[in-house]
Design a protein around this nucleic acid. Structure first.
Lengths: 155, 155
DNA sequence: CAGTATCCGGTGCGATACTG
DNA sequence: CAGTATCGCACCGGATACTG
């Protein structure tokens, strides 16, 4: 397959990175998956600056990844916490695959977080599977081809 | 689970992003997975500037994701092409999960690339699976807990 | 506690030109 | 074809201070 004359403009990877590829974005999303929902809690764990965290959260809300949810603790005035939308929850495989790779190749010690099946406690991982159920695939078992939305390069 | 007092320094996601989180890095890796291996071919498809592409490739080589492979075409002098190392090939689930999400949520048209099982031609996707084989899981079926390398926050 | 406003410094990036 | 060298700008991000 030669890709030279195909456009890369409507690539899901590129467009996905427009949304979650900014600095701190995936870190914020990781926090939300871990259940950290308050601004100052994220701030302390992330180490990002206030304006940057605020900007990322606002962008993620604009992109439909995160929603602001009002809440009120007794004796305090109303505040907001942040939660993932369904669209945001679907980012989980990306996070998991990235964590898996990073734990294996990019950290020196043991993993700091493990993901387990809620029911049985066994470790959870991401696998490649074909729609016909042919077990676990590796990159060598697959091929890429132009999809229905493929466009030719104009320039 | 409360994560407030746990450190985020040895997180696989954070450390993984140190390597593949830079602008253009995943785009370069996408090209390599598609089989685009020559500098100027990537340059034309990516739209990045020469210095940036050169810098990313050098960093990816330094990080063990990419290797430079010498080749010679008849009548030309020796040149180099770029290929993924095994460590780089293991990034495939991340790319696939990101493509899946981006194709579903971040592009307007149909997907520009589809991934198929080489043997049967069926579509390939990433799924979450527990080590005990309990089928496909969603984020609601899993829980995160501190791993063996978890550290308490010092500050 | 949860942000916003402002300023300022570094640097990453593209444009361009040059070299093997 | 495959880079490297140089330059200048834009922008991003941290620090700080202020507000609801």
């Amino acid at each position: 397959m030669q890709w030279r004359e195909y456009s890369t403009s409507n690539c899901g990877i590129a467009r996905g990175l427009d949304v979650i590829g900014r600095p701190w974005a995936l870190m914020v999303i990781r926090e939300l998956f871990l259940g950290v929902r308050r601004f100052d809690d994220m701030l302390a764990r992330l180490g990002a600056s206030r304006p940057v965290l605020a900007a990322r959260l606002r962008e993620l809300v604009d992109d439909g990844i995160v929603r602001r949810v009002p809440y009120r603790e007794p004796g305090h005035r109303q505040r907001h916490e942040y939660r993932l939308t369904d669209k945001g929850l679907e980012l989980y495989p990306i996070l998991t695959a990235l964590r898996e790779w990073g734990d294996r190749h990019a950290i020196d010690s043991e993993p700091s977080v493990v993901i387990r099946h809620r029911d049985c406690g066994a470790a959870v991982s991401t696998v490649l599977r074909c729609a016909d159920g042919h077990g676990d695939l590796t990159v060598r078992d697959v091929r890429a081809e132009p999809g229905p939305g493929a466009r030719l390069r104009t320039a």
